[in-house]
Design a protein around this nucleic acid. Structure first.
Lengths: 213, 213
DNA sequence: CCATCTCAATACATACCTGTATCGAATGAT
DNA sequence: ATCATTCGATACAGGTATGTATTGAGATGG
């Protein structure tokens, strides 16, 4: 026999948000603040104001700024990874030339918005300066790279059998182009049309003879 | 007749450094400090300690942190531009395949050291956040881009007459790859051999049919 | 040789950010 | 209903960075 059933308790309306909810709100504020003011520039006050919470909530939920930074970075990179995976998967299963589909999917799936890019860039710089952070960052980036590499292999398996033995470096190359392009595009939106550099890059990629070199 | 000649005045030994000298020392300290601690993280104390000067010298020479940041960035990017120009020029005039020479020269000339990269990246992030800084950064980057584009055109003119009409975008592409590769390499030196990504990219470039597309 | 000026070092005042401690309201268990 | 607990808001203290003012040593010119 079931002792406690929720059947008769239709969850009373809480006037007080759950801990997870406030934590989430702070993460949202942190994303914005870190993106717009940088890690050092973002203050507790700044973060909390954006989501209408007090520093009490902040300090109650996160032990330190570093901890919050890691948390928001992890959340962002995980969403990014999933986003990239699904959009690549759907693109590769569609009709049309695989390479173009892949590139388009990459642009769509990895074209995280301004805040995501800025946060990731900020964390990247942080990683370059702190060896401890570097390993964390590298591990996260490795997952992104493997998603890209997997896609590269699948694309090329449709062109010729076997995986290109430079797939790892190709993945890094793709990522490098994207990061660089993303930066230039955010800086001068007028200078580069949407995904233009990646599209140009895709044309290079099509000359697949190079892959096997 | 020359009234004042320096022939008999072999510049007395100054016990006090010139203003330009101390300014230069502070710039050196700023380069290191901004690179290793970031713009916000670098303090006056930090900068001054590295070059054995007091904050008095700092505040006497620079009105604000922003001003110093701009000054050290400008100095760095100018050196970078000259470095890139000369190394490309000498490489293109040498024997061997032009594309490879160019890429090698690019790596050598633009492979500024860790501090230069970090400073530039930091300034880039700053530019993304402050529109006022963005225009300054874009102007500087435009000069770098034109140097690269010029080289691209010269390389391709040796292959076929006329300049590729996508040369501007190719230049941006090269810069994007380099920035991205530089970052990955600094983060995981073991993962990428020296200029490996750019070399791979050079192989793509060799299939010049794409350029004219 | 003296007077003036330059410039970097030191001292000071102000502002601000972080983390801790305290307080009060909402929750849910008995 | 009551009591203990959770949790976010407010108040406080410590540390630190910035910019200004002041001072004294060294240069410069008459």
């Amino acid at each position: 026999m079931i002792q406690k059933t929720a059947l008769l308790s239709p969850r009373p309306v809480r006037s007080r948000p759950t801990r997870a909810q406030t934590r989430e709100r702070i993460l949202n504020g942190a994303l914005e603040a870190f993106a717009e003011r940088g890690f050092q520039g973002a203050t507790q006050e700044d973060i909390c104001e954006r989501v209408r919470l007090s520093r009490g909530a902040y300090n109650s939920n996160f032990r330190s700024k570093e901890e919050l930074f890691f948390a928001i970075y992890d959340r962002t990179i995980e969403r990014l990874e999933r986003h990239l995976e699904t959009s690549i998967a759907s693109a590769l299963s569609g009709p049309g030339p695989a390479v173009e589909n892949f590139v388009r999917a990459f642009i769509a799936g990895y074209a995280f918005d301004r805040s995501w890019y800025l946060l990731q860039a900020e964390f990247g710089l942080h990683a370059l300066r702190n060896p401890a952070v570097a390993s964390h960052y590298a591990a996260r980036q490795a997952r992104i790279l493997s998603v890209i590499e997997e896609a590269v292999c699948r694309v090329w398996s449709g062109i010729e059998p076997g995986r290109p033995h430079a797939s790892s470096r190709v993945a890094r190359l793709i990522l490098a182009v994207h990061e660089g392009a993303m930066f230039q595009r955010l800086l001068e939106p007028s200078a580069i049309k949407d995904g233009e550099l990646l599209a140009l890059f895709a044309e290079f990629l099509v000359s697949r003879s190079v892959i096997d070199a």
